[in-house]
Design a protein around this nucleic acid. Structure first.
Lengths: 154, 154
DNA sequence: GTGTCGTAGTTCGTACTCCGAACTATCCGT
DNA sequence: ACGGATAGTTCGGAGTACGAACTACGACAC
């Protein structure tokens, strides 16, 4: 049984877990020569490419912020801007081959690192956490900033 | 029952929850005229003051990064640098009255906002999440960047 | 006492993040 | 063809973060 002094409320549990996960995410990105934001961009683009406006919504950034992020990531050769054939104003951002390869490696390694965080939980407890947080994510319409499975796509 | 397609693994659940909580935290800070980092600094300092080196460890920042953060927060009149009586080299960072008042309000409001995220869960489910994440936090020795209860102190 | 080494914080230069306001160019409805 | 929405970019400014180099002091040895 958990001692009373160690008990914690949902709110603190969520905030502190977020802090932990962020730190791990940032550390993982760092070792791939990525900033957390650039890593996140790569992860979002793994399944498919998006327009700037879509990315802006998904990542929760102002469009002007995104321009810079894509600029820098593009300069690193990881993403590419393609014109949208249907609308001359629009562009779509896609991973370059190098970006896709790096995204895969970063994603895999980050999964590995986050996976060990709940190492002290039983398989069933992990499932419970996944299921309950899954509901929270669903209820709050959290965008897919981190996919469930890697290149599981068709 | 959750549909299979909605099922999610622990890793993605943790990463996406972190994303959600961060966004809420940042939004809350913003409305108090704080950056997330400054808000976090205030929250850490709520129970007591710390030396720069301690803060550096707690927040996971390089000491040089912390100097700037404390500088800016100090410039805003929210924290104060006091000399450490026991060691002329050291200083301790403490909340000013204004900082303490703002920290309280920010903390309370942020709690309120994070608290509604798992609104779709039953009381028991919330307890389960709190207990399991509490173990993860404990196992990974996550510093108290966000306290359990507000000014619960004597 | 006087080295010498470690520790506490700061400074400096650099790169990145983020925003809002203003701007350009194009789409779309009338 | 006009006028209002929409897609992205540019610009200026504040903040974040790091490592390397530096200052100043404590602590231990001799």
């Amino acid at each position: 049984m958990t001692k009373a002094e160690d008990a914690i409320g949902v709110v603190a549990a969520l905030v502190r877990t977020a802090f932990l996960v962020n730190a791990v995410y940032a550390e993982s990105a760092r070792e791939f020569g990525l900033t957390p934001q650039q890593g996140q961009l790569l992860c979002v683009l793994m399944p498919r490419s998006y327009a700037m406006g879509e990315l802006s919504t998904i990542l929760g950034l102002a469009k002007s912020s995104l321009t810079g992020l894509v600029d820098r990531t593009e300069r690193n050769g990881l993403v590419r801007r393609d014109p949208d054939p249907r609308d001359p104003r629009g562009i779509t951002v896609a991973l370059t081959p190098r970006g896709a390869e790096l995204a895969d490696r970063f994603y895999t390694e980050t999964c590995r690192r986050v996976d060990v965080l709940p190492a002290g939980l039983t398989g069933q407890e992990r499932d419970t956490v996944a299921r309950l947080l899954g509901r929270v994510i669903h209820d709050n319409e959290v965008p897919v900033v981190f996919a469930e499975s890697p290149p599981d796509h068709p």
